[in-house]
Design a binder for these strands. Structure first.
Lengths: 143, 143
DNA sequence: CATGTTTTCTGGAATGAGTCAAGAAAACAA
DNA sequence: TTGTTTTCTTGACTCATTCCAGAAAACATG
């Protein structure tokens, strides 16, 4: 599906900023608004920061993007959506990677007592050290 | 254990701000720095905001407090620590409640492929609607 | 109880992500 | 082509959090 089709299928108007953001997100990974803005400006003459925020909010609202916000870092956006995957975040450098659902299908976790809350999503964040930061720690030990 | 003993047992100096923060945290719940500061000032003549931040960071470092940061809200601190419990967050009002570990002991989740990350913690956040906000939605439907 | 060293606290400025608001511009329905 | 609605621009602003330098308090030692 083209970006235009994607947008129309969700009832969103088709605009240059939206198409550009979709393209950038399709490049993969988890990006901050800052990074997305930089890449979008690389394809379009000019886009306001505000427009990028608005576009991302719209895309998330209709399920074309997902917002992730690990403690301690600004919001990240990704295109991979609808498969309820989770994330591993590096305590050292903040890098992040996808992890497939730990226990079957979404919602893959079933809390016993929810205190009357009506739960619709279980978000899992794994914390640890990425390969590069593990090496750094080893080096420190050796020193 | 008294606050003083708690602090000493972790190798922290005993100060009035630290004792006050410990007492406030012991009142239970999940509080923002703002709320904690307000309550601390209720027991002490004056404490700088910065001191509260420093104290909380120190308590978390030695495992006497835990910092939680659900997407979209400022950091919350709680005294319940070491039992790897999780949280349900209300999409409507941001209220938060504890949920016992979904699948046994900590680390209660075991991702299959971690891309070489060395994982030491699995943090689970359930999203949904608290009892009060469920009622609000029902009212809207009826209107 | 003095003294010196280290850690913690104060006060105030600064940062950075994100939001608000009003008007201009673009998209779309008719 | 026109009118209506949505989206984008610009720029001010909020709020949580951090940074900094110096003052004060805690504690180890004699």
């Amino acid at each position: 599906m083209t970006g235009e089709q994607l947008l129309r299928s969700r009832g969103l108007r088709v605009t240059r900023p939206r198409l550009a953001v979709l393209t950038v997100l399709a490049e993969g990974g988890h990006m901050e608004v800052d990074e997305i803005t930089r890449r979008v400006r690389n394809r379009l003459d000019s886009v306001s920061t505000q427009a990028v925020y608005d576009v991302l909010a719209a895309l998330c609202r209709v399920g074309l993007a997902r917002r992730v916000e690990p403690a301690g870092s600004p919001a990240l956006y990704e295109a991979r959506v609808g498969d309820n995957h989770h994330h591993v975040v590096c305590r050292g450098c903040g890098s992040i990677a996808d992890v497939d659902c730990a226990v079957g299908q979404a919602p893959c976790l079933d809390p016993s007592d929810t205190h009357g809350f009506l739960v619709d999503e279980a978000e899992v964040t794994f914390w640890g050290l990425c390969p590069a930061c593990q090496r750094t720690v080893d080096d420190d030990d050796g020193a």
